[in-house]
Simulated scan of single mutants.
Amino acid sequence: MLTAIIHGFILSLGLILPLGAQNIFIFNQGARSKRLYEVFPAVITAAFSDTLLIYLAVGGVSLLILSFPWLQNIFLTVGLIFLVLIGWTIWKNSSVDKNKQMQRLPIKKQILFALSVSLLNPHAIMDTIGIIGTNALHYSGNEKWAFAASCATVSWLWFFILSLAGHLTDKVMDGTRGMILVNKISALMIWTVALYLGYFLLHQ
C-alpha cells in the first residue's frame, strides 16, 4: 500500500510541475486576489477536475472517450476556444489603468475557465489516461485506489501552493507594473498552448 502511495505522489508531482495553461491560470488568479480565499473557487475547481480525471483514468472509464475520435475532437475544439478566450481576458486586464488594482475574475468565470483548462486540456487528458492510468495497472484493489488518491492529493496541494505563490508575487510587485507584465506573459503562454492544440487537431 505504501509503495502505491509513494509511486502515485512522485509520478503526479512530476506531471503537474511543468508550466501549462492550468498552472498559469491558477497563479494568475492568485496574483489578482486581494485576499487569498478569493481564488479558492478556481483552485477547488481545478483540483476537483484533476481528481475526476485521475479516478476515471484509474477506473478505465476515460478510455471510452478516446475510442470515439469525433467526441475527442469536440472536446479539443471547445478547449481551443476557451483557451483563446482565457488568453484574451488575461491580456485585456493587462491594459487597465496602472493606478487601478487589477481584479480577479468573478466566481462563475473562475469556475468556468478552471474547468476548461482542466477538463479540455489535451495535456491533462493524456497525462491522466496515458501515464497515470497506465501506471495504475500495476496495482489492484485497495492499492489501486490508494495510488489514485495519492495522485489526486498532489493536485490539491499544488494548486493551493501555486495560488499562494501568485498572491505573494502580487504583494511583492504591489499589483501594478510587475503584474501587468505577468499578465501579458501568461496570456502569451496560454495562446501558445492554444496554437499547439490547433496544430494537434489539424494533424491527428
Rank of each mutant, 00 (worst) to 15 (best):
F48H: 02
L19S: 04
E143M: 07
K34G: 08
S118D: 07
L53F: 06
L53H: 03
T89I: 02
Q72H: 03
S33H: 01
I107H: 02
N142T: 13
S49K: 07
I16K: 02
Y196H: 06
K98E: 13
V78G: 11
V84W: 12
L66V: 10
V39T: 12
L137G: 11
E143P: 05
H138Q: 15
A194Y: 01
K144P: 04
F113I: 06
S12Y: 08
T153V: 10
M102G: 06
W70R: 09
A21G: 14
Q110H: 05
Q101M: 13
I16P: 04
G175R: 15
K109M: 14
L137W: 08
F113M: 09
F68T: 13
L53I: 07
A136P: 09
A21Q: 03
L120F: 14
S49A: 14
D174K: 14
F9N: 08
S12R: 13
S155I: 03
S163W: 06
T3F: 13
S62L: 15
H167A: 12
E38F: 02
F159T: 01
Y196K: 12
Y55V: 06
L197Q: 15
M1D: 07
M1L: 13
N142I: 13
M179P: 00
W91G: 04
V58Y: 00
L201V: 01
L64W: 09
L162Q: 09
H123Y: 12
N121S: 05
S12H: 09
K109E: 12
F160M: 13
V193D: 04
K184T: 04
M1Q: 12
H138I: 07
Y37N: 06
G178P: 04
T192F: 13
V39A: 14
D127W: 11
V182N: 00
T77D: 04
Q72C: 07
A146S: 14
E143D: 14
